[in-house]
Every structure is written in structure tokens, then in C-alpha cells.
Amino acid sequence: MADLIISLLPIFLVFLFTSTTVEPAFHRRSRTRAYVEVSCQVTEYPDLCIRCLTAYVHSSNATVLSPHQLVQYALLASQHRAQYTRAYLLKLSKELTDNKGQEYQAVKDCLEQIDLSVDQLSMSIKEFRQLGREATLSRDDQFWHIRNVETWVGSALTDATTCLDEFPGQRMSKLKATVKAKVLNVAQVTENALALFHRFAARY
């Protein structure tokens, strides 16, 4: 009997460790998802907002339970979507270099706009992080950072939308349709991030 207890002891310890570590992590993810789902209802594309943020938070193994965290992850998710699209457009423009037709020019112009979006989103994230030190900021400084974030995220959205203007109408080649879909995703994710930021900034 004693030998049986000794042999089962490691299994019991593993179960005990798992139940005290995995379960809290599961509950944290559940609370995070619930918080994201409720918060995303203020956005123009709530389903996209939920999918984008839960996927990003899950991949980062993070917990989001505050408005500041939520906006920061929304901006980071938008930046990463823009970076991914920029990399795709850069690769595509190199492939089309020998064929300098309409598609090449449209992709080249779009790449310039998305490149600007990436830079502006990067600046907005740095600026937004300053608001995390709000206890040490004067009210004027708070408003300064808020205006800067709003300006840069808004500009990033405008640039992505300008890129979409390069692909008007519904009938287009498969290549143009793919580019348009990727850029539209950047624009919608950025618009959602801006809506979440506006809700956060309203507290000031």
C-alpha cells in the first residue's frame, strides 16, 4: 500500500500544480475576452475588433482588463496589420518592376501610403504610452498627448483610405482585389483602434 501511495505521489503533484496554474490562466483569458467583447461594441466593426484583439492578446499571452491596456493593444494590432501589408506590397512591387503598367503604379502609390500609416501608428503608440504616466502629467500635457495620438491615428486611417482609392469599383484583377482586401483590413482595424481611443480619451 505504501509503495502504491509513493508511486501515485508524482501524479498527484502534477495534477495539483496544473490545477493551480492552468485554471487561473484560463479564467484570465475568459475575463480578457469578455472585456474585449464588451469594449468592442463601440467600434464600427465589432466582430473584426473582437477577432483581431483576442488573437493579438492570445499570441502575446497578455491580459487586458483596463481601457489603457485595451487601446494600447488595439494600436499595436493596427500597426502590425499595417506592417504586414507593407511587407506584402513591397514584395509585390518588386515582382511588378519589369511590368510598369497600371498595376505596378497602383501598388507603388499604395505602398507609399501604407508606409506613412506604419510610421504614424508607431508615433501614436509611443505618444499613447506617455499617457500611462498620467499621475505625473499636468492636464495640459495630457491633452497634448491625446491630440497627438488622435492626429496620428487619424492620419494613418486617411492614408490607408487614400490607398483604397487606387482600386475603385468591384471589377478588378485578382491581384488588385487581394491588395484592396489587405488594405481595407488595415483601414478597418485602425478605425476600430481610433474609436477605442476616443472612448478612452473621453475620461479626460
Rank of each mutant, 00 (worst) to 15 (best):
D3I: 00
S7I: 11
L8A: 08
V14D: 06
L16E: 15
F17K: 04
T21Q: 09
V22I: 15
P24K: 02
F26M: 11
F26I: 14
F26V: 13
R28M: 15
S30E: 15
R31P: 02
T32Q: 12
R33K: 14
V36S: 11
C40R: 02
C40T: 10
V42I: 09
E44L: 06
D47G: 04
I50P: 14
I50V: 15
C52L: 15
L53W: 10
H58L: 02
S59K: 06
S60G: 03
V64Y: 08
L65H: 02
L70S: 00
S78H: 00
S78K: 00
S78V: 04
S78I: 02
H80I: 10
A82P: 13
Y84D: 13
Y84R: 13
R86I: 00
Y88P: 01
L92E: 14
Q102C: 03
Y104G: 08
Q105M: 12
L111S: 03
D115P: 01
D115G: 03
S117M: 01
D119A: 00
Q120F: 00
F128H: 07
F128C: 07
Q130H: 13
R139A: 13
D140L: 10
D141I: 01
F143W: 13
W144C: 06
H145G: 02
H145D: 02
I146M: 06
R147Y: 12
N148S: 09
G154K: 01
A156C: 05
T158C: 04
T158L: 11
T161C: 07
C163H: 03
C163P: 05
D165H: 09
G169D: 08
M172L: 11
S173H: 07
A177S: 12
A177V: 05
A177F: 05
K180H: 06
A181G: 02
K182G: 05
A187D: 07
V189S: 09
A193M: 02
A195G: 02
F197A: 04
F197E: 06
A202Y: 04
Y204K: 00
